[in-house]
Design a protein around this nucleic acid. Structure first.
Lengths: 337, 337
DNA sequence: AAAGTTTCGGAAAGCGCTTGCCAAGTGGCG
DNA sequence: CGCCACTTGGCAAGCGCTTTCCGAAACTTT
């Protein structure tokens, strides 16, 4: 009851295995027209579907592209995934997906799985973070690279040999800070992910750097989980601080290191009767899709997430890296009334 | 330069290929402890990673689970994908992902790709719709099933042989209508996807059925693309209608066949100065994650999307189907002031 | 027309692994 | 001590396909 094999097709067409293979599965040599047609007809009639596993084994190239993300349900990653998937499909590759919830240990495991599938290339999309497990991940990456795998990291390097699609978190965060200052903001509260999470750290560093360059510094810095709930927690803790700031006649601006945190902050503050932009300013980072219907419109740094995914996939498939461009976008949430 | 093979490990450990295989890649027979250790050490030292392709070929079972969605960046699908991925990972399967943008032709192609990879099972998550391409998709599905593949559909049947994880769209939409009527709503405007899109049709049918059962009927019905932009377009078209309804002293309620459409509707109406719930009521369907930070809180039908994905994956892997439970959730958007 | 060139189908050797079968070794028991 | 029942490792036959190498046939060329 198993699937139809090439040799069955060959037999039905009255040709050899080799000929059938050449006709059906693309080869340098193209058999004569008559033979080719017979083979194709037989394949059609039998409902032949080539066994990609066997092809991969024989060709020693699997046509597989792996994607490792923290959480596919997070709009940040799902947008990137969409880009990767689009390119993979266009290039005739099959996409393998793994979710790791951010742990380097899980990332290592996922990479090993992909390596065992002999994926031609892997895109590792999660933010790096400091962890004792990183050494193991790095070793796994090096082994994968040594076995002719291509590995593309998003944003941060892992080993010298893997390609990196650079994302200018730091610079863009600086530009955001500049834009806010130009807009008149003077009092800043920062909300970031846990220390050691590179994406978050770079954004905070860029923001603070820009403040310092203008002779300013942040009024407070809070760290929490790098997602909506972390933002909520940080926001709740910010309530009294912002209230005091208001009483001093200031208009405090909260910069959260990503949009999800910013949304959490907004939710927490809203619960306490504080609203942006009237009571405080709020800015995020990423410009995830979700923002489109978020009120008030959130000032942020736009990152072309789907394009980033696509670019990463192209690099993984042997293409050239193109620089990632982000852009500061000021919306209502920082429009002081 | 290629990867380390089992036979290299066997040689290094001074045992036969068969023994090495039994030690490393799980077999009914477990070799003696001393030998096992030698093999494991050798594997470790050489950095051996089993070739899953070759294993799949030899075992004739690939350990692959395919997932076909319309758009992985859509929170509806990405939540489902998360569930599928979680179960796949927990069960030691590798997840293949394909996005189709909703076309049955692309779904067929994706299914063929997964079939050629000899995926043990496939979850087809997109909504069915009437299309001439459906016949080809059905044939592909039947072929896949005939070749011992397992296929799980989400929501709607495709062929008699494929499992279906039923989602009671119709019943739940009816319950939502009932709840709204109980709340005092009397004037209803429906916004749905294109005719023939089963998910949308079932939800509309359920909603209208419940209206009819209470002696009501919808004041208008509009169809547009089954996403945020479609909702926006429909919302824009609704403006005059709702205005008139208001002038008659009514409080019109808009039911959109999914949350994304509802959000589009809200955006369009907001632009025209109409706000929920003061000017109109608004309800959606799905309770996607995004809703968490949407203002006003959107009344909807909660579907445990991640759980649905997980359940589908379990069925695909041979488990029992558990019924999908949804739940009407009334939030601020239909709380008449 | 003979020799050289090209074209084309087929045989067979892998790709890296699993597994049925066999032979040798081990221990238990009468 | 001899026989039997197990264990345990190894041999070899695949799994379904690609691809190299051959030989035969079909053309050219002079």
């Amino acid at each position: 009851m198993g699937a139809v094999t090439l040799s069955q097709v060959a037999q039905a067409a009255g040709v050899s295995l080799a000929t059938a293979s050449r006709v059906l599965n693309g080869s340098a040599r193209t058999p004569g027209a008559g033979v080719a047609e017979r083979v194709r007809d037989a394949a059609q009639a039998l409902g032949y579907v080539a066994n990609a596993q066997a092809q991969a084994l024989a060709r020693s190239s699997s046509g597989l592209l792996g994607l490792i993300v923290h959480d596919i349900a997070d709009p940040y990653f799902s947008s990137i995934a969409r880009g990767v998937q689009r390119v993979a499909q266009a290039e005739g590759r099959t996409l393998l997906l793994a979710g790791t919830d951010g742990g380097p240990a899980e990332e290592r495991a996922a990479l090993e799985v992909f390596a065992s599938r002999r994926a031609d290339a892997v895109v590792l999309a999660g933010s790096r973070q400091e962890s004792p497990d990183n050494a193991a991940l790095r070793r796994e990456a090096e082994r994968y690279l040594r076995n002719d795998g291509r590995l593309v990291l998003l944003g941060h390097a892992l080993t010298d040999d893997a390609s990196v699609l650079e994302i200018p978190h730091e610079r863009l965060a600086g530009e955001l800070a500049d834009a806010l200052i130009d807009d008149g903001a003077r009092s800043f509260h920062l909300v970031g992910g846990p220390e050691g999470l590179l994406t978050s750290d770079q954004r905070l560093r860029g923001f603070r750097g820009a403040l310092a360059a203008r002779g300013l510094s942040e009024a407070s810095l809070r760290r929490a989980a790098f997602g909506r709930d972390g933002g909520f927690a940080a926001g709740a803790a910010l309530v009294p601080v912002l209230r005091e700031s208001r009483q001093r006649g200031e208009w405090p601006v909260v910069f959260a290191a990503n949009d999800r945190m910013a949304m959490g902050v907004a939710a927490a503050l809203r619960e306490q009767g504080l609203h942006a932009p009237s009571d405080y300013g709020l800015a995020g980072f990423d410009d995830i899709d979700t923002l489109r219907d978020f009120q008030p419109g959130l000032s942020t740094v736009h990152l072309p997430l789907e394009g980033i995914g696509a670019a990463a996939a192209r690099v993984a498939l042997g293409g050239e890296a193109e620089p990632v461009r982000g852009q500061v976008i000021l919306r209502e949430s920082t429009r002081r009334v």
